[in-house]
Computed example of a mutant assay.
Amino acid sequence: MRKNKEDTALTIERLLELARNQFTNKGYSKVNLEDVVREAGVTRGALYHHFANKQGLFRAVLETVQQEIAERVQSEAAKSDDVWEQLLLGCRGFVCAAIEERNKRIMLIDGPAVFGWEVWRAMDEQNSMRLLKEQLQLIEQQGNMQPLSVEALTHFLSGSLNESALWIAQQSNQTKSLEDTMNVITHVIHCFKC
């Protein structure tokens, strides 16, 4: 029984990785599930056993991307002990991860288009936005922030980061655009300090 669970987990992992590559390279609308199953060396029935349809497979891929980006945010933020620097490092980590080739089309373009803004936002709220809110709550609890609504501030910063990532991804000089964005974010965040 254990071997079957391991085989199933490996099959799912392989399908997700191959599908992610296809969604990254072709975009959601141009991905054909036949290509995914052929490349994975499984039957169409095996794919449908784990994922109801193309949208179900894409949702699992998007959730994986969202989780990886959240892990990156945590990893970057953990590089400092200062709560404000953690916030800035986490913001930078989010933007850098979101604009990576492997993530940007899935996360920023096809994700909202395929599932709609509400579903996409719900996923974001469970991952990166949750971390942003937790960091702002920590700063507020320590008394290091102006008396502002953490909820409103979370949505304000999250929206700014998402829009900035979209903008940076379209720029020819992404390094400069990222630095310009981080300068603006740093300036805005300093306005919230006590």
Rank of each mutant, 00 (worst) to 15 (best):
M1I: 05
R2I: 14
K5W: 07
D7R: 15
T11L: 10
E13S: 15
R14Y: 00
R14P: 00
L15C: 05
L15F: 00
E17D: 12
A19Q: 08
T24Q: 11
G27E: 08
G27A: 10
K30H: 15
L33S: 12
E34L: 15
D35M: 10
D35T: 07
G41F: 04
Y48H: 13
H49R: 15
F51M: 15
L57T: 03
Q67S: 15
E76Y: 05
A77G: 06
A77E: 08
S80K: 05
D81E: 12
D81F: 08
W84H: 02
G90V: 09
F94A: 02
V95R: 11
R102I: 05
R102W: 06
R102Y: 13
A113P: 03
W117N: 13
M123P: 05
E125Y: 00
Q126D: 11
S128D: 13
I139Q: 01
E140A: 13
M145L: 06
S149L: 12
L161M: 15
N162R: 15
E163R: 12
A165T: 01
L166Q: 12
W167G: 09
I168D: 06
I168R: 11
Q170C: 10
S172H: 08
T175A: 13
S177T: 14
L178C: 08
I185F: 09
V188K: 09
C191F: 02
